[in-house]
C-alpha cells in the first residue's frame, strides 16, 4: 500500500494508523496525527483503517513564537 507520511512516500503493509506508527518507530504521547487533512485522535488510531494513497501527517511539539 502506498502511503505518504509527512510528505515522504512509503510502501508499507499496515492496516491501521496505529500499526503505521509502530512500524515507523513513532512513539510518545506528544504526537498528533491526521489522515487526509482530518485529525485522528490518539484513542482512535488503532481503529483507523488506512487506504492506498492516504496522506498522513505526524506532528510533535516544536519551539515557536
Amino acid at each position: 500500500m502506498r502511503l505518504t507520511v509527512n510528505g515522504e512516500d512509503h510502501d508499507l503493509a499496515v492496516a491501521t494508523l496505529a500499526e503505521l506508527l509502530a512500524t515507523l518507530d513513532y512513539e510518545g504521547d506528544w504526537l498528533a496525527t491526521a489522515v487526509n487533512g482530518e485529525l485522528v485522535h490518539r484513542a482512535d488510531r488503532s481503529d483507523h483503517a488506512l487506504s492506498d494513497r492516504d496522506r498522513i501527517e505526524i506532528l510533535s511539539p516544536m519551539k515557536g513564537g
Binding site: 515507523l24 513513532y26 510518545g28 506528544w30 510533535s60 511539539p61 516544536m62 519551539k63
Partner: peptide
C-alpha cells in the same frame, strides 16, 4: 509561553525532548 507543532521525524524523540522541557 508560545509553542508550535512541526512534522516529526521517525522515532518522535525530538518533539518529546522539547515537550518535556516545556
Amino acid at each position: 509561553v508560545t509553542v508550535s507543532l512541526r512534522r516529526e521525524t521517525a522515532g518522535g524523540r525530538q518533539g518529546g525532548a522539547f515537550f518535556e522541557l516545556v
